Computed example of a mutant assay.
Amino acid sequence: MLHGIATEIATATAALLLSAVLTALVRVPALRLGVLDRRRQRPLPLLGGLAVVLVTCLVTAAGEWIGFAPLVDGIGTLLVAGAAVAALGLVADVRRVKARFLVGGTAVAAACVVPYAETGVPGGLLAVGWIVFVAVGFRALDHADAVAGTVGVVTAFGVGVLAAAEVMDGLAALLSVLAAALTGFLMHNWHPARVGLGSCGSLFTGFVLAAAAVTMRTGHEPAAGAGVLFALTALAGMDVVLVLLSRRLAGRPLLRGGSDHLAHRLRRLGLTPQGATILLGVGASSGVLVAVLAHLGRIADSGVLWVAGGALVVVLALLRVRVYGPRSPQRMQSPQVRGQLRVRNG
């Protein structure tokens, strides 16, 4: 028992140190190759996510090689599918890729890891949609320094605890390695960030966490299982819902980037970048804690309704934070806009 714990600690420590070193090394190639996130106030070199993916895959494979954490129960398939999603995200980091290709590719990968024998086809299709939603949600969380990484670490710990409770040691080991790799990356991503996670790392993180959660909850009562899955990743879902509602109500394109995410709105309320990250980390921890307690039977399954209610209140409150400036005169005078106004005015 003690030997296993010591081995797990040593593995996680190795993943953390390797990730910290590799993240520092990929910064220079990202700058030279122009792999940058130009949406922020300063161009931020990406490829930090590539470091997280490589360390997670290599350390987990090493655990299989030494016999510490065999890749059983579909964990090998999950890791390969996650690597494929990461490769798709890396392409998106290097060059512009339409959102539908990212969503479609992630859906194909998700379809390869869902245990249809236990979920059934309808449940499996719902699981595929949920995995895609979470992966896209984590990509959306990568809008400010350290947010996606912090939420990823918290969620990985939560899902890992539940996997250990279900005696899925290999899955728990994978999640501990992912949490350690993200922690090493955060050493360079805390504000002011020196390197970013990018689509490669954010899609990989969201995909692995969601797929692992589905695998862990398979066999439980569907409604209760859905509640636990929601609570585990409530913060990522909140960000997606908040942005879509905000842009819809403002008449803006749904898929166009903008400073209207959770951290952006908290900054508008006066929080510092570090304060916004910590607050979002606490929010993610609250949802994960409720999910863990509900799964372990320490609280009623209906406890997740408090998470849903809290998420709804936060979304409605943050919708009132003004993030969009006035429309530009050029756009208001364009023929298309004038035509739309004439139609609306009858």
Rank of each mutant, 00 (worst) to 15 (best):
L17S: 03
V241E: 04
F230M: 03
V59C: 04
G198D: 04
G129W: 02
A24T: 06
V292G: 06
G270N: 05
A140G: 11
A236D: 06
V26E: 01
G206R: 15
L255V: 10
R139Q: 13
L249M: 05
T11I: 08
L271S: 05
I299Y: 05
V240R: 05
L312M: 13
R267K: 11
G137V: 02
V240G: 01
L341G: 07
G129M: 10
V153M: 15
L289E: 15
L318C: 05
T23L: 01
A135P: 12
G227A: 02
L25F: 14
D73E: 09
R38A: 01
M187E: 06
V315Q: 05
S259N: 14
G129A: 13
T60P: 02
D260Y: 06
R268Y: 07
G310S: 12
L312R: 14
A193N: 03
V337S: 12
R342E: 09
L44D: 00
V321G: 06
L25I: 14
P335I: 14
I66D: 13
L78T: 03
T11Q: 03
A92F: 08
L269F: 14
R96D: 04
V228I: 13
L17C: 12
E8V: 14
G281Q: 12
I5D: 09
L316R: 15
R42Q: 15
L78K: 07
F157G: 06
V52C: 08
A24I: 08
F207G: 05
P326D: 10
A10W: 12
L271M: 14
G104T: 09
H264R: 13
G63H: 07
L203Y: 11
L2M: 12
M332N: 05
V288E: 12
L249Q: 13
L255F: 15
V208W: 13
V314Y: 10
A135E: 14
A226K: 06
W130T: 08
E221V: 07
G74N: 06
A61H: 05
H220F: 12
G76L: 06
R40A: 00
G120N: 00
R95P: 00
V343Q: 14
V55S: 10
T272L: 01
G227F: 02
L186F: 05
A24L: 13
V208F: 06
V314A: 05
G137I: 14
L266N: 01
G206N: 09
A284E: 14
I75K: 08
I131Q: 10
G104C: 07
